[in-house]
Structure formats: structure tokens, C-alpha cells
Design a protein around this nucleic acid. Sequence first.
RNA 1: UACCCGGUGGUGUAACGGUAACACAAGGGACUUUGGCUCCCUAAUUCCAGGUUCGAAUCCUGGCCGGGUAGCCA
Length: 586
Amino acid sequence: MSGDNPIPKPAAERPDPDVSAAGCAPCEGGSDFIREAIREDLRTGRYDHVHTRFPPEPNGYLHIGHAKSICLNFGIAQDFGGKCNLRFDDTNPTKEDVEYVESIQEDIRWLGFDWEDRCFYASDYFEQLYQWAEELIRKGRAYVCDLTPDQVREYRGTLTEPGRESPYRNRSPEENLDLFRRMRAGEFPDGSRTLRAKIDMAHPNVNMRDPVMYRILRARHHRTGDKWCIYPTYDWAHGQSDSLEGITHSICTLEFEIHRPLYEWFIQALGIYAPRQIEFARLNLTYTVMSKRRLLQLVQEGLVRGWDDPRMPTICGLRRRGYTPEAIREFCRRIGVAKYDGVIDISLLEHCLREDLNRRAPRVLAVLRPLRVVIDNYPEEQVEQLDAVNNPEDPGMGVRQIPFSKVLYIEQDDFRETPPPKYYRLSPGREVRLRWGYFIRCTHVLKDPQTGEVLEVHCTYDPATRGGNAPDGRKVKATIHWVSAQHALPVEVRLYDHLFTKPDPDDVAEGADWRANLNPQSLEVVSPAFVEPSLQDAPVGSRYQFERLGYFSVDPDSAPGRLVFNRTVSLKDAWAKIAKQQGQDA
RNA sequence: UACCCGGUGGUGUAACGGUAACACAAGGGACUUUGGCUCCCUAAUUCCAGGUUCGAAUCCUGGCCGGGUAGCCA
């Protein structure tokens, strides 16, 4: 940019930015430092198109942090009229498995992205990588080293002291070539030799101190089988794979920043096409752990029920919980992209979810903790079908009918024998509205003579208020939900809370580890809960708002006649706040 | 202790040398057949010190603080 005019023009007078750059479209994902860098590259002609890639290692399930990267890489491709490849970074057969490549593909598709016919594997390039390695050997830029792993570490030096050169560093290209070919041929035991780039053992960046390019490893690879007993390291494979695929912008997380000089060194030593690596901060979320290692630990130690446990931040966990791809994408859009390594408040994720579900989830009535209500003046055998609006946010979603009868269940929380201040639900003498039903007034209660617990609430109803409006115009302070006892469906409901009790799971006492902060109440099973009969055939995965309670989705554990619901997220609850301020347990 | 990167309300992100803004969270209010939604309002921000400039969150220097890096992991 040439800042020739010190006073900026108002936006309306400014020429449209970037329209001249080839393939540059408006940025739906907003703008961030990466998109700016790309625009600059297009403007200066460093690249004339945009091609990104999402490069997971198939050694675990994708999580919400990957979603950030997926939205970034595919989103940038969309914004700039380019393409985004899926590439599995499968250079370590000891950790990888087809189970993961399949789940990763499923999750990316579910999130709404498409790599078309461009699903690649680093292992596709093993032969090319091998040939390039020989080329570097011939150029005297790589050598076979016989140091043991311990010795390599020792020779590398430390962060503050330079390393020492390997005694094998100055072998001739001929000898190196011979040794390297024999490495490939399987003449040497695992770990006995490596191929290393010949760079600088005194380099202040330890990644440049003759990094390992190949190790000997007899492990069956999920794609190449037993063809190879030497495998390239990340550093040797990644940049060359990017180059081969014609990637323009290789976007990765901050911890690879210090690898960039090496990334560029290999490309330059080979004299091949050069992509540009740009790093951004990975996602951190409050009340959540995100590292693959920890997620794996949660699963393996049985701390959760599996990778798709609805409490997990994995994509499959969120999906099972009832999250929508739209909510996750919107979240990723709103958090932005930067190099500052911060922590996102999980309430932003929950906000995006509610915003989406509010718009699309049909409403139903369900009672989690039933309290029996008897309408004393309602005819014994009578059943009425009442009209209920499916979604006040969207009249197009229509109306359904729900049965009403003499005996109902309401929520225990919606009745208080002695109401606290500002409580305006049902209590003796008070009148409330039953959603889509009648006004009812509490006359008296039946209690357990031993415990004093309220067993049954007796009410009278006003027949003139059918549907919920009083002809005389009188108002009630509260509308509560209910189900007809004889028509309600018993179901299981699983209520979830944050997996950790602290915003930062690492915030633990001396000697304890993050597991000490696991929330023992992160899962609460309510069974039976009661839902209105219209839910009878609700399909797995379908989402509903249980009015006044939250959003719920049907769990795959459901069987015919035995529905299981996950609470995806609760509704915001102003009363809970008031009650909390009053020092009650709400 | 070496090198790299970063630091803007509680949290995250904008502002591209010209009045520090948006969202979430928080607090208050209006509305309401969901104490939901929606709407309105309030409080709250440039790490510090110098320098350049008419003017600095932005450029420069120094400091402070935070993160990353010493796998034959990625």
C-alpha cells in the first residue's frame, strides 16, 4: 500500500478494494490478518489464485478447534474463488488408523464443506519424497546419521547452547546414497539410522540443527501396508506435499511458526514451487480441554462414554449433543482469527447455538420433574385437543394439537407453597396460565404426612380461558408448561453441564492434575421425564425446544417406544439469576 | 538462560497515522401466552517508559508480561 493520501476518504468515496485482484471475491468470512495477507499476495502478484488445504493427521477425532481451521481453510477458498484440499498427514503409521480417516471425512462433510475430488494423503507422495531426499543427498545437503536417539538429543545442544556436529555429518554423497538405499531396503534395524538435513548445528532455532528427515520404522501403514520401513517426518513431508498440490497458502497453528524457516529451507534446497505458510492461534475454550492427548485420555480412562459423548468438544460429540453445523460455523466466524493465544468464553458457542435453534426448533411441552396437578372442576373422563403453535418465531411451522385432561403434570419448580419474592408461578391462591390451555388457580395441596412433601396440587380451571386468554381481560403473571398425565410419554432425558468445574481446567492445586477439575455433575439422567404424545415417532437427531427448559435432541440410544433426549443447551433463565441473588437454590 | 511470536473493556475481535468500535458476558429497563425471543439503556479498553509527528492503539527504541520451541510426534 502506498499511503499517498494522509486523510482517508469516507467509505462511500473510496474505490472498491481488491476488485482488481484476480479471483478475489468479497469476504463472507469477514476479514482477518490471513485474508489480508492473501489479498496482498494477490495484489502484488506473488500468487494469482488461492488454494488451501486442511491437513489432519488421522490419529484422532476432530474437535471444535479443528472446526476453526476447517472453516478458515475452506472459507478462504470460497471467499477467493479458490479450492481447498483435504489432505491426511499420515507419516506416522504407529498412531494412525482408517477409523480416523473415515470419521474425519464424515465430520467435515457434516460441517458443510466439500473437498470434491481432492482428498489426498501425504503417503501418496512417499516415492516422490524419497527421490527428493536422494537429490538432497547428491547435493550434499543431507546425510545418513548413525547416532542413537539419545545421542542425537545430546548432540543437538539446548535452547541456550549450540549443538555439536554428528561424526557422520561429512560422509560422501556416494556413501550416503548407498546407506540411504539400504535403509529403504530394510538392511538396518529400527531406529539405528536416520537421514538428516545438513543445515547448522549452531543455529539459534533448534529446528534447523540438522533435523531428521527419515526414520527407520517397521510398522504397517494403513495405506501403504509394508511397502516402506522408512517414514518421512512432518517437516520433510508437509511443505513438499503443499508444493506438490500447488497450495498457495499453507495455514497452520502457532506452534509451527518456528518450523517455518525449515519449511522454506527444504523448498528452496529443492528449488520447487513455494507455498506460503501462515500461522494462527488455535482455539481454546473455557471449561474445556482440547488437546488430542487429553481427549484420548478422557475416552481411554472411561471418564466419558466415548469420542461422541455429548460432553466432548469433538465434532461427533457436539453432533450427538444436538449442535447444528450452522451454529458451529457461525461461532467460528465470530471468534475471528489472530495470533494472540487467548481463550474464548464457551457462552459464545452456546449463544450461537441458541440463536440458530431458536429460529428452527419446533416447540413442545415436556416435564422433567413431574408434580401431579388435579383440576377439581374438570369433568372426570373429558379429553380436549388444544391447538399449540409450533414455533412463534416462524408461523410457517404451523400448529399441532395437544391433549388436555383432568390430571396433569407440571414442573416441580413451577409450584411453591410459600413463594419467595418475585416468584410468580403457581402457589396456593394464585392463578397462572397453562400454555395453550386454561387459567388455573391453586386451591389446596396434598402432602405426605411424614415428610411434608407436596404430593399433589389441587386447582380449579376457568372454562372461559380456553386457549389461554381471559374474556374479561384479566392477566396472569406466569405461563407454565404441562403434560396430560394419561397421555404423556415417559422418556429418558440426559442433562449435561460443563465437563469441568473451572473455566481453566489446569487451574488446580499443587500436585493435582486437570482431571481433578472434572465436573462430577456433568451428566444427570432424568428418567422418567414426560413429553407430549406428538413426539411419539421423533427420529434420532431431531431437535426440539422443550418450552421454558431448553433445546433437546433425540439420542441414538433411543429405541422404539423408548425415547432418549439429550439436552443440547438450556434456555437462558432470568429466574435462576434472581433466585441465585436471593441465595436460593434455583 | 537462546531464538521466534504476541499484548486493545471481564472474554474475543475491529479500527491500516485522524473522535477507540462490534459481539459475547455482566447490570438495569421495556415487551411478552416460554422469566425464552426481541428492543432500549448502563458500566467497562489501547502493558509501561521514552521518541518521531500538528496528531500514535497504529511507526521507532528500551523495558515488563504472556505463549511457543530442545520427538526418530504432528
